[in-house]
């Protein structure tokens, strides 16, 4: 296990290095002069020059890149060009919001997706399975930003049950916190649950056809133990993989829902930084989400190894 983790970490180093290079190069894609673009229209020459000095644009690419990398290694994530705040404090402030949304989304994916997928597998090609297949297909096809507008229109505008906008931290009450989370989590959770149900159904049917299940049936193992011990355990690994992949790409989804529901999380930070050309923040967000993806992928491998002793990578 340690060898697996070490090898994965080592092989991902060149990749993460390339990600830092890509992220850092983004600011050089700005058309025209960078300082002018950041100062905005109508800024005078002195302001542009001050910005150029402040963000170190008068230095070359290599020296700027190296000093940024050096900062990262010593824990200095840089300073926002727009707010003047440190990027790390901004990230920490926003992390609980996004973590709450992510946790809620995964919870919906598991609580909704697993039972639906299992029922589908147990009663494959019956009416429930057919209905659920259609529902999951729609769940996977529906754009999350449209779903967000439908949910807001229904539960906030028409029924008035839930707030349409904003976020309150858990410290100011669990109920208001949850009320603000329901719609964003549901928006992302529908896709995640559909993906989960589809994977659980496929794995269930796949495992069911395996010879060892036929043997277990022939030996007269009761149905409850057959499904619980034999099928579900073996069908769990791909489902966990799907959950991990969903988690690692959740940042794209949170950009959408945090913008629509006005939740001040990392996704909203991303779109705000992108709109205001705040490159120090964008670079760190890109690097951290790539690191997050690498870590999740590694965790998936470890869990896979744990659940299925046959998977011993050479």
């Amino acid at each position: 296990m340690t060898a697996l983790v070490t090898r994965r970490l080592l092989t991902s180093l060149p990749m993460l290095f390339l990600v830092t290079l890509m992220a850092f190069s983004l600011s050089y894609l700005l058309p025209g002069d960078t300082a002018t673009a950041i100062a905005g229209e109508g800024a005078n020459a002195e302001r542009v020059e001050a910005i150029r000095q402040q963000i170190g644009l008068d230095q070359g690419f290599v020296s700027r890149y190296v000093s940024w990398l050096g900062g990262l290694l010593t824990g200095d994530l840089g300073t926002s060009w727009v707010t003047g705040q440190s990027v790390s404090s901004e990230l920490l402030r926003r992390l609980p919001v996004t973590a709450s949304i992510a946790a809620g989304t995964l919870l919906i994916a598991v609580l909704l997706g697993v039972p639906i997928g299992l029922l589908q597998g147990m009663r494959a090609r019956r009416s429930f399975d057919r209905a659920a297949l259609l529902a999951t297909a729609v769940g996977l096809a529906i754009p999350n930003f449209w779903l967000a507008t439908i949910l807001t229109g229904t539960f906030s505008v028409q029924l008035g049950w839930l707030p349409a906008l904003g976020y309150t931290p858990i410290s100011s009450g669990v109920v208001p916190w949850m009320k603000h989370l329901v719609l964003p989590c549901l928006t992302l959770g529908v896709f995640a649950a559909a993906e989960m149900a589809r994977q659980v159904r496929t794995s269930y049917l796949h495992v069911q056809e395996q010879p060892y299940i036929q043997t277990a049936i022939a030996k007269g193992i009761p149905a409850r133990s057959l499904v619980g011990k034999h099928i579900m355990k073996n069908a769990a690994a791909p489902a966990i993989t799907v959950l991990g992949i969903r988690l690692s790409h959740l940042i794209s989804g949170t950009v959408i829902v945090e913008e629509i529901f006005g939740a001040p999380g990392i996704g909203k930070f991303a779109i705000e930084s992108i709109r205001s050309h705040d490159f120090p923040s964008i670079q760190v967000l890109i690097l951290f989400s790539a690191m997050f993806v690498v870590i999740i992928n590694m965790a998936i491998d470890v869990v896979y190894c744990f659940l299925n002793p046959k998977v011993r990578l050479s």
Partner: peptide, 16 residues
């Protein structure tokens, strides 16, 4: 592949 797709696309368009 390691960079979440929508984030990368938005960052590129934000710059370009």
């Amino acid at each position: 592949l390691a960079i979440p797709g929508l984030l990368l696309a938005l960052a590129l368009v934000g710059a370009l």
